[in-house]
Simulated scan of single mutants.
Amino acid sequence: MEQKILVVDDEQRMRKLVKDFLVKEDFIVFEAADGEEAVDIFLKENNIDLVILDVMMPKMDGWEVCKEIRYYSKVPIIMLTARGTEDDELLGFKLGVDEYISKPFSPKILVARVKAILRRSSAATEDVLEYGDLVLNRSAHQVFVEGKPIELSFKEFELLAYFMENKDIALSREKILNHVWAYDYVGEDRTIDTHVKKLRSKMGEKCGKYIKTIWGMGYKFEV
Rank of each mutant, 00 (worst) to 15 (best):
E2H: 08
K4R: 15
L6T: 05
L6W: 10
L6I: 14
V7H: 05
E11K: 07
M14L: 07
M14Y: 07
K16P: 02
K16W: 14
V18D: 06
K19W: 03
F21W: 02
K24A: 15
D26N: 11
D26T: 07
V29H: 09
F30P: 02
D34N: 13
G35P: 09
A38W: 15
A38T: 12
A38L: 07
I41S: 08
I41P: 15
L43F: 07
L43T: 12
K44T: 15
I48M: 12
V55T: 13
M56V: 07
M57K: 12
P58Y: 05
E64H: 06
V65Y: 02
E68N: 12
R70F: 10
R70W: 12
S73G: 08
P76V: 13
I78Q: 00
L80E: 03
T81L: 08
T81N: 12
G84E: 09
T85K: 12
E86L: 15
D88P: 00
E89A: 06
G92A: 09
K94V: 01
L95E: 02
G96S: 11
V97G: 01
Y100A: 00
Y100Q: 08
I101A: 02
P104W: 08
F105L: 01
F105Y: 04
S106G: 08
L110C: 11
K115M: 04
A116R: 15
A116C: 04
R120A: 07
S121P: 01
S122P: 01
L129R: 08
E130R: 15
E130G: 04
D133E: 09
V135S: 11
V135F: 03
N137D: 10
S139D: 02
S139P: 01
H141R: 15
Q142L: 08
F144H: 13
V145D: 10
K148M: 05
I150W: 14
L152H: 08
L152K: 05
L152D: 07
K155I: 01
F163Q: 03
M164V: 02
E165P: 06
K167W: 05
K167V: 05
D168F: 14
D168S: 11
A170F: 03
R173T: 01
R173V: 00
E174C: 04
L177F: 14
N178W: 00
V180R: 01
A182Q: 05
A182V: 12
V186L: 09
E188T: 08
E188C: 01
D189M: 00
R190L: 07
R190S: 11
T191E: 13
I192Y: 01
I192N: 00
D193W: 00
T194M: 06
V196E: 06
V196K: 02
V196N: 05
G204W: 15
E205V: 14
E205T: 12
K206D: 10
C207W: 06
C207N: 10
G208Q: 04
G208V: 03
Y210F: 06
W215F: 06
Y219V: 00
K220S: 12
K220C: 13
F221T: 09
